[in-house]
Design a protein around this nucleic acid. Structure first.
Length: 826
RNA sequence: GCGGGCGUGGCGGAACGGCAGACGCGCUGGACUUAGGAUCCAGUGGGUUAACACCCGUGAAGGUUCAAGUCCUUUCGCCCGCACCA
């Protein structure tokens, strides 16, 4: 071993050694308690970025810590390997998506190994491998057979740049989640998963997710968007039709002065056919439908409404109300129409003032009466009903239920719960994804591919052109199929599945990655799941995490898994920033993990990232602080290396035999063990763990200066051992090297986590603070364990205190055991 | 507009309601050196002071408390998510 810290040698040596010994491979079962630690697997874009390094460093500390604590830890890694970038690379550079993907995987695997992350690489898989996507397709079939996968023609989100459709969850502020192009609406027949069937359970079971950040739960809650209200039927005057409107305010139904349909509402065409407004409205509808989602739904967009000329009958008043068509009404939400109550809804109020519709007050606040002619805003607060027939005088909160019950009784309406969540669109008009295992037969219709015929393999010889159709459609060998039903000729579905489908079940597959007969071995899944700790970026708060929860519930219902939620604890790590902004090529503020590892080594890179901020918070990159971590590791090396041969074999020595500096040193060792253990296990505060370890090192430098005759060798030995063990999850290479060079057998990463001795923590003397009127006036070194009376007594004898309180009246004395005495005087 | 988070030295960040600023970076001084951008030691929130000391300090303003960065109310700024949801 060298006297100088050469991280390149040390890291290479141990990485090779761990790999040779298969140190991190995990048996399927064990008697020890299990712990499944998982970081979100990456898309193989080519290189790791700092966000990855942060994610995987955090996960590695958790995995190594839990292993040392005696858990049987599953810590796997794989590749979310289907996706658009591979296909775009094919179009741009003429390289096959498969080749591009596997090259990237090889690169990134090397990088992960260079970081020394303790993955069980035997469990690695890529979702684009037939061995995996066979089961993605199999799972699609299970959903299909359960009636949870269906094909429907509807207006869907279309990204012109990616030339494919997107799920609602992938549209961010009207733009494509991947390429930020403005999303358009297109009328297409697409496959959906009925996630809405699970809306209530997805919502309710969030109560089970105690280990999730509140923020993520709130976001999912909002995304699901449950609302309670009523459906009310309005007969259309002169037609045989009924408009069913959804409202959360049935208490205001007597105040309806108009009714608005979405432009796409099926009734619109019928109502205007043959009327003088026909062409005008048709033109309006056409225009609105061609607007992008962002123009259509932005709150700033002007609200435009046109009367259809038709009217409907308010079921409670018998009154005729005009029916309009307006751009702000969405077909997808509720029933695709809105009742206009200008007096009690701000949006309706503004709309009515603009178009001169009547404002009718039906809820009166306490105090002066509202005057519909002079009101300048809607009254949306509570009050009592007026102008509402038999319901007059009832508080509106009670009226909501009463009126709905009445409507239900008269068969004019009913209670109804509505969700904002829509079904999950999974079709993608792209090549590089798992083919949807469906064929279309002229005789038999939509036919699922039999399980025995899986996988439906992706053909390798394909033309890549961004046409808006799946490249598979241009591939006759793929398209032409035999119908499994009648044996006649049929056509294959050429769309592939959303890659979020691949990532919705991968955490099950890690338990039995090579299983050939099923997606997983149920015993193994039941043993390992749920994931005890899941770690990843908050950007997946809705997409991936909601889909995964949905999948887990479906699989639970199919009796394929035994857990209802996939992830018990979730840690959402913050972003890595440079100069206050997210690292990005366009800003030119990217720091490459490769460069950092080459310059300082993996241990330094990991240590910095864990030390610079707590994991949930954003982390500001600092080259100088990285340097500081590098210096610290050098400091550890220089502390341990020179004395490695002189360390006493035994670290056993009872605390009671120790006095003075030796006793102090041992106390700090055990205090540090306690602090680091608690900071990691109770709150994942790795930054304060590291700082505690730094303090221990600083103290050891002092201790080393003590003349050898005054030092107790076993205290030094124990402190050095503890230091290395505590630091091992953070900086696995240097600690392994120093561990073995200080005479230990076996890997440090298989050692038990150190325990602190409560006896060693006991202090003989403590400093107590003396306050007068809450201001610190003196500090006293007193024997530990004084009673409050004794503390008080000492405080009152303190000459400084006596001087300061002289001539004043003591109002009160507040002693805090072992800490302070506050004397309140006047 | 709604929801969430964050405001603490020059910087990243610590502080069960009980000594604000641990630890690290940076800076200053010293030691060792031919040299130091290596290493070691010491200092480092602001102000008054020759010094002992004292005063002021956690975005701002109030409040609760013997005691508030921490709890409550109001307010300002920044970041993130959702946004015509009927």
């Amino acid at each position: 071993m060298k006297e100088k810290y050469h991280f390149e040698e040390v890291e290479k040596k141990w990485q090779a050694c761990w790999e040779r010994d298969d140190l991190f491979s995990v048996p399927d079962f064990s008697d020890r308690p299990k712990y499944y630690c998982l970081e979100m697997f990456p898309y193989p874009s080519g290189k790791l970025h700092m966000g990855h390094v942060r994610n995987y460093s955090i996960g590695d500390v958790v995995a190594r810590f839990k292993t040392m604590q005696g858990y049987h830890v599953l810590h796997p890694m794989g590749w979310d390997a289907f996706g658009l970038p591979a296909e775009n690379a094919a179009i741009k550079h003429g390289i096959h998506p498969a080749e591009w993907t596997f090259e990237n995987i090889n690169n990134m695997r090397d990088q992960l190994k260079q970081l020394g992350i303790s993955y069980d690489w035997n469990r690695e898989f890529a979702t684009c491998h037939p061995g995996y996507y066979t089961w993605t397709q199999w799972l699609f079939l299970q959903l299909f057979h359960k009636g949870l996968a269906y094909k429907k023609k509807s207006a869907v989100n279309w990204c012109p740049d990616c030339a494919t459709v997107l799920a609602n969850e992938q549209v961010i502020g009207g733009c494509c989640e991947r390429c930020t192009a403005q999303v358009e609406k297109r009328e297409l027949a697409q496959w959906f998963f009925k996630i809405t069937d699970y809306a209530e359970r997805l919502l309710k079971d969030m109560d089970l997710l105690e280990g999730w950040p509140e923020k993520v739960k709130i976001m999912q809650n909002h995304w699901i968007g449950r609302s309670e209200g009523a459906e009310i039927d309005f007969k259309v005057d002169g037609f045989n039709d009924t408009i069913t409107v959804y409202t959360t305010r049935p208490d205001t139904v007597f105040g309806v002065t108009y009714m608005v349909l979405a432009p796409e509402h099926p009734l619109v065409e019928k109502l205007i056919a043959g009327t003088e407004r026909e062409s005008e409205i048709r033109e309006f509808v056409r225009k609105v439908r061609h607007l992008s989602e962002i123009d259509r739904t932005s709150a700033e967009a002007e609200k435009i409404g046109l009367p259809t000329g038709a009217s409907c009958i308010n079921p409670l008043t018998g009154e005729k109300v005009p029916i309009l068509v307006a751009n702000y009404v969405l077909l997808e939400y509720g029933t695709g129409c809105v009742m206009g109550v200008p007096a009690h809804d701000q949006r309706d109020f503004e709309f009515a003032r603009k178009y001169n519709y009547q404002v009718r007050v039906v809820i009166q606040p306490p105090g002066p009466d509202l005057n519909p002619d002079t009101m300048d805003a809607a009254y949306e607060e509570e009050g009592c009903l007026v102008n509402s027939g038999q319901f007059n005088g009832i508080p509106n909160t009670t009226a909501i239920k009463k009126i709905t019950s009445y409507l239900e009784q008269e068969a004019l309406g009913r209670f109804r719960v509505t969700y904002r969540l829509r079904d999950w669109l999974i079709s993608r008009q792209r090549y590089w994804g798992a083919p949807i295992p469906i064929v279309y037969c002229d005789r038999c219709g939509v036919v699922p591919v039999p399980e025995a015929e899986l996988p439906v393999l992706l053909p390798m010889e394909v033309e890549f052109k961004p046409t808006g159709q799946s490249p598979l459609a241009e591939c006759p060998d793929f398209v032409d199929a035999v119908c499994p039903g009648c044996g006649g000729s049929a056509k294959r579905e050429t769309d592939t599945m959303d890659t979020f489908m691949c990532s919705s079940w991968y955490y099950f597959r890690f338990t039995s990655p090579r299983e050939k007969e099923a997606p997983w071995d149920k015993d193994k899944v039941d043993y390992w799941l749920p994931v005890d700790q899941y770690i990843g970026g908050v950007e997946h708060a809705i997409l991936h995490l909601l889909y995964s929860r949905f999948f887990t519930k479906v699989l639970y219902d199919l009796n394929l898994v035994s857990n209802q939620e996939p992830f018990t604890n979730l840690l959402t790590q913050g972003m890595v920033l440079k100069d206050g902004a997210k690292m990005s090529k366009s800003k030119g503020n990217v720091v490459s993990p490769e460069d950092i590892v080459a310059r300082y080594g993996a241990d330094t890179a990991r240590l910095f990232i864990l030390f610079a901020a707590p994991p949930e918070r954003d982390l500001e990159w600092s080259d100088q602080a990285v340097e500081g971590c590098y210096r610290f590791l050098n400091r550890v090396w220089r502390l341990v290396a020179p004395i490695r041969g002189t360390l006493n074999k035994s670290s056993r020595l009872p605390a009671s035999n120790l006095v003075g500096i030796n006793r102090e040193m041992r106390r700090l060792t055990h205090k540090t063990i306690k602090k680091v253990t608690e900071d990691i296990s109770e709150r994942f505060n790795f930054n304060t763990s590291v700082s505690a370890i730094m303090e221990l090192v600083n103290a050891l430098y002092q201790y080393k200066e003590v003349p050898e005759t005054d030092r107790e060798p076993s205290v030094l030995r124990e402190a050095i051992d503890a230091l290395l063990l505590l630091l091992a999850p953070f900086a696995p290479h240097i600690t392994e090297e120093l561990w073995q060079s200080t005479g230990h057998e076996g890997s440090i990463h298989l050692q038990p986590w150190p325990a602190y001795d409560p006896e060693a923590l006991i202090e003989d003397e403590v400093t107590i603070v003396i306050q007068i009127n809450s201001r610190v006036r003196d500090r006293l070194l007193v024997p530990a364990g004084l009673t409050v009376e004794e503390m008080q007594e000492r405080a009152m004898k303190d000459p400084k205190v006596l001087k300061l309180i002289e001539g004043k009246k003591i109002v009160k004395i507040i002693p805090v055991p072992g800490k302070l005495v506050n004397i309140v005087v006047k």
